[in-house]
Design a protein around this nucleic acid. Structure first.
Lengths: 209, 209
DNA sequence: CCGCGCCCTAAGCGCTTGCTCAGCGGCGCG
DNA sequence: CGCGCCGCTGAGCAAGCGCTTAGGGCGCGG
C-alpha cells in the first residue's frame, strides 16, 4: 500500500463514525477544503466536487454548510477531549501525566493538523448556539489539563505560581502546532510530541528524565 | 480622557504612517473587521461603513480589498520584526535578551491583539506574491529569535538540544496570544509578557530570577 | 414484472459580493 | 466671482454564492 493510499485509509478511519459513505466523504472533503482555504473561502460546490458529487447532493446529508463545520468541530473536539482525558485519568505522578498529556495532545494536533486547524481556527464561523456547545467541550479539556498542573503544584512536583496562566500557555503551545505543522516538514508528529513534552516539563520546573 | 477615547487615540497612532486620514481610517476599520470575522467574511461595504464612508470610497485609496490586507500585514510584521530586533541587538546575556524578546513580543501580541490576529491568521488570503514577501519578514523575525537561543546554547547558559524546535515553540507560544487574548480578560498585556518570559526561560533551562 | 423509496443530478432562483463609473460638491487660486 | 481639481457618492453590473426543486435511475420486496 502506497503512502497516498495509507493516508486515504487513515483519513477514512478518522471519520468512521459518520455514515452513510457519502456523508463521510463529504466530511472528509470539507475538512480538507476548510483547512486549506478557511470556512468562508470554501464553496459548497468545492466540497461536493472533492467528494465526487454534484453541489445539490450535499444538502441531502447536511442542512447547511455550517452544519458540516459543526459536525467536524464536534467530532474533533470530542477526540481531543478523550485524548486529554486518557492522560489525566492515568495513574502516575503529575509529571508523568503531564508528559503524557502534552505528548499525545501535541502529537494529535500534528498528525491530524488539517482537522485540528479547522476545529481550532474556524470556531467563529459556527452559529452562536453551536459555538456555545463546542466551547463547553473545550472548557472540559482545559479543566483536565489544569487539574494535572494543579496536582503537581500542590504536591511540590511543579513550580507554577500561576496555574491558570501556565495551563493557558501549555494548551496554547499544543494548539498552535496545527497552524504551522506540515507533513513535509522535518519533524514527525511523534517527534513534535516528545519535544513539546520535554519543553513543558521544564516549563513547570519538573526534572526532565 | 475616557477609556474608549484612549483606545481610539492609540489605534490611530498605530497607523500613524498611513496618510491621508481617510486611508488611515480605512486601515483601522479593516483591521477591526478582519480580526472580528476574518478576511473572507468581511465585506468592503462593512469596512467602508465602519470608516464612515460609502463603499466606493474604499477604491480611491486601495485598488482591492486584498491590498488593504497586504498593507496591514506589511506594517504589522515590520513592527513585530522591529520589536524582536530591538531585543536581539540589546547588550546583555542570552538569558536577558531572551527574556526581553519574549516579554515585548508577547506583550505586543496581547496589546495589539486585533492587528496581531489579522497578520498571523489571515496570511493565506494574501496573493501568492504578497504572501512570499510577508513570509520573508517572518523568516527574519524567526532568525533573530533563533540566534538568541543559539547563543545561549553555545555559551552553556541554556539547555536546548533542539534549537530550531525550541525557537518554533517559543514563537508559537507568543503568536498564539493573539488568538486567545481579550482586553476584558483577567490579565494585562504586561502581565502576559512577564509570565511568558518566565515560562520560556525555564523552558530553556535558564535560572529564573 | 411492477412499484416504491432512496440518492442523486441538472437547472436555476434570489441574493450578495467585489468592484466600476458618471457625476457632484466644496475648497484653493486667479 | 469663476474655474478646475480632488475626494467622494449613488446607482448598478457581472459573477459567484448558498440553497431549492423537479425529476431520473437503480435496487429491492412482492
Amino acid at each position: 500500500m502506497g503512502a497516498a493510499a495509507e493516508r486515504a485509509k487513515e483519513e477514512n478511519e478518522e471519520w468512521a463514525g459518520v455514515t452513510p459513505d457519502a456523508a463521510r466523504r463529504l466530511v472528509s472533503a470539507a475538512v480538507e477544503a476548510f483547512a486549506e482555504r478557511g470556512y468562508h473561502a470554501t464553496t459548497t460546490r468545492d466540497i461536493a466536487g472533492r467528494a465526487g458529487m454534484s453541489p445539490a447532493a450535499l444538502y441531502i446529508h447536511y442542512k447547511t454548510k455550517e452544519e458540516l463545520l459543526y459536525r467536524i468541530s464536534g467530532i474533533g473536539h470530542e477526540k481531543a477531549l478523550r485524548i486529554m482525558g486518557a492522560a489525566a485519568e492515568a495513574q502516575g505522578s503529575a509529571a508523568e501525566r503531564l508528559r503524557d498529556a502534552v505528548r499525545t495532545f501535541a502529537r494529535w494536533h500534528a498528525e491530524h493538523h488539517t482537522t485540528a486547524r479547522v476545529i481550532q481556527y474556524e470556531l467563529q464561523a459556527l452559529s452562536p448556539e453551536h459555538y456555545t456547545e463546542i466551547a463547553g467541550l473545550r472548557r472540559r479539556t482545559d479543566r483536565l489539563l489544569r487539574q494535572i498542573i494543579q496536582d503537581g503544584a500542590d504536591s511540590g512536583e511543579f513550580r507554577a505560581d500561576d496555574v491558570p496562566g501556565t495551563t493557558l500557555a501549555v494548551l496554547s503551545l499544543c494548539v498552535d502546532v496545527a497552524r504551522w505543522f506540515t507533513a513535509d516538514g522535518p519533524r514527525t508528529p511523534d517527534e513534535v510530541g516528545t519535544l513539546y513534552a520535554d519543553l513543558v516539563l521544564r516549563m513547570v520546573g519538573a526534572p526532565v528524565a
